[in-house]
Each structure stands twice: as C-alpha cells, then as structure tokens.
C-alpha cells in the first residue's frame, strides 16, 4: 500500500504553528477520509478471479492487490461510490449498508 499513514494531529497553539499560507508537505494525513460512506463494498473472495478491473477503476485508489492474487479494500479511504461493484464482471463485489456490514 502506497497510502500515507495517518499521522497524529497536533493542535496549533500559536499562529506560528500554522504553515505560511495553505500549503504543506504532501501526504500529511491526520484523519481517515471515509466518513460519509453509506454503503461499503464487500468482496466474495471465492468468486473474485483477480482480474483487477476494480483495482484499475477505483477512483480513490482504495483497492489493493493481495498476496493470493485477490483484492482488498482500504476502508479508511473508500468513499463507497460503488464503481467496483458495478464494474465487476463476476458479481464478486456487493454494496452492503454500513450498519448491516460485519
């Protein structure tokens, strides 16, 4: 995974603690970015063929390859758009309502 790790957010105490203008080192993430997801994609590993169509099409780069040539989701960044489930030719991915998902 090339995703930057979540860093601890230090609350600024003085105006000097802010960067000069709204620019800062790239990839400095202090929170996960998946808070507004209603449905989450869930993959059935037994059906997944490892074609990686979803991996290529994920708009947020939230799908990664696994060692056993399948896929997994990074739920810290997945926005729940459903593109992967829509594009999967084998219906291996289903969109499950957050509170119903395990």
């Amino acid at each position: 995974m090339l995703k930057p790790e979540i860093k601890n957010y230090v609350t600024p105490k003085h105006i000097r603690d802010y960067p000069t203008g709204p620019s800062f080192e790239a990839g400095h993430l202090v929170s996960i970015n998946a808070g507004w997801r209603t449905f989450k994609p869930v993959v059935d590993i037994n059906v997944c063929t490892g074609c990686y169509q979803c991996y290529l099409l994920c708009s947020d780069g939230a799908i990664s390859k696994t060692d056993n040539k399948k896929i997994e989701f990074d739920y810290s960044f997945c926005k729940g758009c459903g593109v992967c489930a829509h594009e999967c030719s084998f219906n291996a991915i289903s969109m499950v309502k957050e509170e119903l998902a395990k």
Binding site: P12, Y18, G21, P22, S23, G27, H28
Partner: peptide
C-alpha cells in the same frame, strides 16, 4: 512534494 492551496474548515480558516 507539497500539497498546495488546500481548503480549510471553519476550525482553521480564520487563522490563515
């Protein structure tokens, strides 16, 4: 690399 021209929530906008 820098991330430039980011947005802020009301929690930080006034400081900028």
């Amino acid at each position: 690399p820098k991330s430039m021209g980011f947005s802020t929530s009301p929690a930080d906008n006034m400081e900028f």
